[in-house]
Write a protein that binds this DNA or RNA. Structure first.
Length: 259
DNA sequence: ATGTCGGCAAAATGCCGA
């Protein structure tokens, strides 16, 4: 069973790349982020043409998350949006049951510039995620919280090519890292780190300054597994070739295989 | 400070968010 996450950075512009990747990678479940579309303009027909059904939580112009599974398999929405703030208008969380798993597509706020209200929102959103994640962790069902966490866990080369030019960025700030560590402290396993602890396996390369060409990448898309899911973890990786194609997203798909 | 994208409003360029 293959479960993937892909920040597409605009599902309309990225549709050729997305369909091509679905055909090649054949994930059983795919979580998408930054679909940047209203609910009524989600490209359902094109995705069905590739053999996938979807649920989505859209938003005009920004954010937006989706969960895809193969047509005919289980896909039941459990929750859209995190509890804890009824005034939050951003579409950043979508949780589903699929293939006997609980899976959530997560688009954590970027938080730049920091300090400031956007960084405060990032930390407040993270607190809501932590609270909800604690209740999910204890599930006897396998649970996967996967997506763009917008956090570089450490300054190590497995997480970032070089922290120097990012040291003031929201993705590296101690408060964001502390929140991510608290997720791990609940017991969640960071699948890529767990299977490849010392290897640079980046998921994002900024469009600026030829950063993909120089492999100046960051690992910010994470697949967090509860104990029931981690017991079944067999493989984890990143489809970095997708980032090298024409009109790519700035992220590459990341995935796990569960037995 | 700078660079490059996607998407939007609204007239084709400037804005925001990343």
């Amino acid at each position: 069973m293959k479960i993937a996450t892909f920040n597409v950075n605009g599902i309309h512009s990225r549709l050729p790349r997305l369909l091509e990747w679905l055909g090649e990678a054949q994930p059983d479940i795919a979580c998408l982020q930054e679909i940047k579309t209203s609910d009524d303009t989600f490209p359902r027909d094109a995705i069905e043409g590739a053999g996938y059904q979807a649920i989505w939580h859209g938003q005009k112009g920004f954010n937006g998350v989706a969960v895809l599974t193969r047509i005919g398999s289980e896909l039941v929405e459990r929750r859209r949006g995190l509890p804890g703030d009824p005034d939050d208008t951003h579409s950043r969380y979508l949780e589903a049951s699929a293939h006997g798993l609980v899976v959530a597509s997560i688009y954590l706020p970027n938080g730049n510039p920091q300090p400031g209200p956007k960084f405060d929102y990032k930390l407040a959103w993270f607190e809501r995620l932590l609270e909800h994640a604690a209740s999910l962790y204890a599930s006897e069902q396998p649970v996967l919280l996967i997506g763009d966490y917008n956090v570089v866990a450490t300054d190590g080369v497995a997480d970032i090519y070089s922290p120097a030019s990012w040291k003031n960025d929201a993705l590296l700030q101690p408060e964001a890292r502390a929140a991510y560590r608290r997720m791990l402290g609940q017991g969640w396993i960071d699948a890529i780190h767990h299977l490849h602890p010392d290897k640079p396996i980046y998921t994002f390369w900024d469009f600026f300054r030829n950063r993909f060409g120089r492999d100046a990448g960051l690992r910010i898309d994470h697949l967090l597994l509860n104990a029931a899911a981690a017991r079944r973890l067999e493989q984890a990786g990143v489809d970095r070739a997708v980032r090298a194609r024409e009109k790519p997203s700035d992220h590459a798909p990341a995935w796990v295989v569960l037995g």
